[in-house]
Design a protein around this nucleic acid. Structure first.
Length: 488
RNA sequence: GGCCCCAUCGUCUAGCGGUUAGGACGGCGGUCUCUCAAGCCGCAAACAGGGGUUCGACUCCCCUUGGGGCCA
């Protein structure tokens, strides 16, 4: 059975790049009917925080990327935190030590720094020279007895090449002589990334390692470790990086990069998932919009691209608009409600009448909404008693010739109405324009500004119907006094 | 600095020796229309450069250039 994992370090939020990696793992697992495992690589004790862990979990949950094993859900290959797995590592290290495939290194940070300096001066690659590898066991016990602290280094093969087949990159090879004896275990007794990742992936029976391109050069080291332990390495798939608009690695200075920030400004998770899926993966017909089941069905590592992808907020925004237009008005209202509450337009408790108003209001603006955080501004005149009039609209539209008369006439006609449907309002307005021989625009535009305070908004008659007779008439009268310059 | 990876419109990409180099976002123009959107129609826009291989290269190989990553 296919088993994949997403293994973030809890040292920050779940960012776009990480989310893309998690998504591809998840899609692959779901497509193969395998298991998606979440493992927390918290061996960086100073930078790991509980807040980051919570943020990552929250981000994944929001995106809908559920895991079959890991924090909060458990599983038979736990624990899923590396710091809780420390005890499981020692025996493998001892095994390597006994076979001479690893050795203690007593070099101090100062010696290492000096070594690096010399190498650089001599224009050699700054790689560990393996001096401690040659010590005899007597040397080592003497040093241990003297209380010298040590790390454990892996004894890399000094010749040959490490080849592997990468599911997205094809065949890749590295010369072993160029790879140095990397540290397996730090003086603190905590394993390094390259060590823990191999031990854990093996223990958790990971079949496919799908991760960022930035780990490609770590792969030969890990493969050698698998071999030294007599284990079969997993299959590899290295995804290209996600870059910012300037072509450098996506980071905070490019704007929003934490997944949760996208939630906060009103992106739908399904839109972000769809967009992320297209960042480095595509179908032969370049299809853009996928429902989740379709994405799972069509996803394959073979169709992942090799080139880095620049994150394009504009395309995401377009896609979000597409998704917003696809959901039902009830669903849209449900999702927009927190934004209206946050803006103070709708109370936190919310009765049924408010609920209905919200539903109708968002429905009128649905085709226009690209992000949920636009909803308060787009619909505020439905929730306010005192609306704000855009000064430019007042000057250009309300104060135009004849507008004041139109508003007064319409107020009267509206008051006489008994049916307050969209159609009824439209009929009355058109009838009025016809009778007076006025262009419809001369009627519609002042009317819109009078009831909403602005020149742009939803369909005029839908707007009137939802506002209701009394509010419409009140606003027409207030707009008139605004034109005449008197207090109502 | 060494090693590795990558290279098609501004961006995401299709293409897997013979295509008018296709789609999507964005841009521009038109259309529809009570405004704004949405929709529809159309336009501009790319094979980084140089060598090979081949009857024929976007496609295969090499070099250069550019970008990215890893090791410190």
């Amino acid at each position: 059975m296919v088993r994949v994992r997403f293994a973030p370090s809890p040292t920050g939020f779940l960012h776009i790049g990480g989310a893309r990696t998690a998504l591809f793992n998840w899609l692959f697992a779901r497509r193969q009917r395998g298991a998606f495992i979440l493992r927390i690589e918290d061996t960086d004790e100073v930078r790991s925080t509980d807040e980051s862990l919570a943020a990552i979990v929250q981000g994944l949950r929001w995106l809908g990327l559920d895991w079959d094993e890991g924090p909060e859900v458990g599983g038979s290959s736990g624990p899923y935190f590396q710091m809780q797995r420390l005890g499981q590592y020692r025996s493998f290290i001892d095994q390597l030590l006994a076979k001479g495939q690893a050795y203690p290194c007593y070099c101090t940070p100062e010696e290492l720094a000096a070594m690096r300096q010399t190498a650089l001066l001599e224009k050699r690659p700054p790689k560990y020279d393996g001096r401690c590898r040659r010590f005899s066991s007597e040397d080592r016990s003497a040093r241990d007895r003297a209380g010298q602290s040590s790390v454990v280094r892996f004894a890399m093969p000094t010749e040959g090449v490490t080849r592997f087949h990468d599911l997205v990159r094809g065949d890749v090879e590295f010369e072993n002589a160029l790879l140095d004896d990397f540290v397996l275990l730090k003086t603190s007794g905590v394993p390094t990334y390259n060590c823990a990742v191999v031990l854990d992936d093996h223990a958790m029976q990971i079949t496919h390692v799908i991760r960022g391109d930035d780990h490609l050069s770590n792969t030969p080291r890990q493969i050698q470790l698998y071999c030294a332990l007599g284990w079969e390495p997993p299959q590899w798939a290295h995804l290209s990086m996600v870059l910012g608009p300037d072509g450098s690695r996506l980071s905070k200075r490019h704007g929003a990069t934490a997944v949760i920030e996208f939630k906060d400004v009103g992106y739908l998770p399904e839109a972000l998932v769809n967009y992320l899926a297209l960042l480095g993966w595509s179908t032969e017909d370049s299809q853009q919009l996928f429902r989740l089941p379709e994405l799972i069905e069509k996803f394959s590592l073979e169709r992942c691209g090799k080139n880095p992808a620049i994150f394009d907020p504009q395309k995401l925004l377009w896609m979000n608009g597409e998704y917003i237009r696809q959901v039902s008005k009830e669903e849209l209202a449900k999702r927009a409600l927190p934004f209206l509450q946050k803006a103070g337009l709708v109370s936190e408790t919310g009765d049924d009448a408010t609920q209905r108003l919200v539903t109708q209001a968002v429905a009128l603006e649905q085709e226009k909404i690209k992000r949920l955080d636009e909803v308060p501004h787009l619909t505020e005149f439905f929730f306010q008693e005192e609306i704000a009039y855009d000064p430019a609209a007042v000057n250009q539209v309300l104060k135009a010739q004849g507008a004041e008369q139109v508003l007064e006439d319409l107020a009267q006609r509206f008051e006489a109405m008994t049916d307050f449907s969209e159609q009824a309002f439209e009929q009355v307005c058109r009838q009025y324009a016809k009778e007076r021989g006025i262009a419809t625009g001369k009627v519609f535009h002042p009317l819109r500004v009078a009831v909403s305070g602005r020149t742009q908004g939803p369909s005029l008659f839908g707007l009137l119907a939802l506002l209701g007779k009394s509010r419409v008439v009140t606003r027409l009268r207030r707009a008139r006094s605004l034109i005449l310059g008197v207090r109502p």
